[in-house]
Design a protein around this nucleic acid. Sequence first.
DNA 1: GCCCGCTGGTTAAACGTTTACCCAAATCGA
DNA 2: TCGATTTGGGTAAACGTTTAACCAGCGGGC
Lengths: 345, 345
Amino acid sequence: MTLREIAQMAGVSVATVSRVVNDVDRHKVSDATRNRILEIARSGRYRPNPQAVSLVTRRPPNTLGLVIPYNSHVFESFYFTEIIRGAVDAAADHGMSIALFVPNRDAPASAYHDTLGKGGALAAAAGVLLIGTRVNDPAIRQCRESKIPFVVVSNSVPDPDVNSVDCDNRSGAQEATRHLLRLGHTRIAFIGGPEGSANARDRLAGYQTALAEAGIFEDPALIAGGQFEEQRGRNAMQRILARGVRPTALFAANDVMALGAMKALKREGLRVPDDVAVVGFDDVPLAQHVEPALTTVHQPIYQLGRRAAEILTAQIISGSTDATRAMLRTRLVIRESCGARRGEA
Amino acid sequence: MTLREIAQMAGVSVATVSRVVNDVDRHKVSDATRNRILEIARSGRYRPNPQAVSLVTRRPPNTLGLVIPYNSHVFESFYFTEIIRGAVDAAADHGMSIALFVPNRDAPASAYHDTLGKGGALAAAAGVLLIGTRVNDPAIRQCRESKIPFVVVSNSVPDPDVNSVDCDNRSGAQEATRHLLRLGHTRIAFIGGPEGSANARDRLAGYQTALAEAGIFEDPALIAGGQFEEQRGRNAMQRILARGVRPTALFAANDVMALGAMKALKREGLRVPDDVAVVGFDDVPLAQHVEPALTTVHQPIYQLGRRAAEILTAQIISGSTDATRAMLRTRLVIRESCGARRGEA
DNA sequence: GCCCGCTGGTTAAACGTTTACCCAAATCGA
DNA sequence: TCGATTTGGGTAAACGTTTAACCAGCGGGC
């Protein structure tokens, strides 16, 4: 039902109807007319066409699109929630809201295109936050092509003229490894993330840098790849143990793999931290609940989301086109699994 | 930059420009003209106005609004993620996407109104899912007034003509309590949720029903209120223990309170399940990781989101107005904290 | 008798697109 | 040479609103 239809039924002009349904210029329409129109609108379940409204009022889209590949590890619940909370808060400061778009990465490229393109995030949003994408993700290319402002979160794209927000994964990993070195460990195993992940790459680099600093040669036998999943962490730990060189410490590129590795160690009869010290990365909520509590590198996830949305809104409002690249500091949270607590006591 | 501007600069009509930027009717424009237009559009960073496009193409809004009060307990991460996953999947089946709206419940009512009203979810969306609202939440009233199709998730609104999807909290709680009764317990404590929560009310009712069934009189000394938070669960347990009547079992209205209560028990030197058997509600991810693993009532959260979005899309597509009220079954997951495992062995 | 202001409207332009329909010039087949 | 077809466009209506500008009629003050 449209304004025009109501107008015809009520025998008035669309202008009058518009005034009534919007409740403006009250003095310009009599109570009788008003009630008649209201009644027709109600019984016809009139709802204004939002497109038409914002077309004429020139209200810019006040939506920020949040694009997350369906099976990104970001969908790990806590990460997801925190980042959204941050983005929502920052967006709210500018009267914007967040729309969620979840393309399925396994879907054909055309479907992917549709989610973002025609009628998707890119059309409806004033800007886009890309979360949990991989390097060379099609979404990134697509955003660039469409000229929409966007910011890539937690995926250090090399390109210097795209906005990005990321944790300093490298220095975080370096700090974690240094911590283990300081505790006297020299045979420190490393369980890494998937190939395509920039985070995984940087965390490996931090590990390597810290070893090099300490003058320790990297031992390939102590390194295994994972997939940021618990089961993979478990397998990786088993593989390392099977190689015969026993590590005295482990740094895992994320917490859930660290947890999996701890299970593998337990199964082999090795105690944490007595036989093997363990440090993770992320600081998932579970980390403080396990036994022993996991020492890990805390990521400021909320801030990540918040900062990303701030950069985006700033760019949208200013219309500027030059990129901001933010790097947030991580923080090493020392709990029990690294053995430092006991060492102090 | 608009089509008209491009047309002027290129010295052609808007129709031609439209054809070029949309890449339709290729044969109707020469390569020279096409390139000229494309170049102008690119350098001017032309982006089509989505409102105008969908106004003229009559594309209905393909967005479902997901409204969650900022500080709802739904923001507990796993709940949030699962429900969204379900909703996203169902929406995707109909080519729709999910937009997130997070009004701050503590904000003044006018701000709340804005989030949902003008320019908010209600304007942009074809329908709304209300998650984590309380009984009599202003959002519910507002949705009803605006005539937009909506479905209330996990909050059993009494009104029979609003769509709702919910877990059968009552029978879930009943089953949990029965389980403890079957294990021989008669002094079963209960830690409840907040006043305003329909879930909390139903879970209490289930507990009471099971007791009544077994011919056991409810002992007020064994009941304490909480707030669905760990700290509250801990306090509630302490209060109950301080009253002098020692329970042999506890049913908590949600998992995190159960976890808090377990900490309180541990502090008092009581063992779980040996001295006090514990059952929770929700099946949060942490439940299977704690020691002892928590027996709990599993909620099909993903299905909740999925079902809600299905109901909504069905109503949007059909244009029908009669309400669907779905009730999903819960499932008791028996782990270690109730002592049943050992009883069997 | 005239000007003024109020009440309760109407008219029409504008927002940025899409697309059905029209049209002139060039080319071509016979 | 002439009609038909192709090439490369242009014109204008339509989508559903909002809102500035205009207007008729009426009552009142002087």
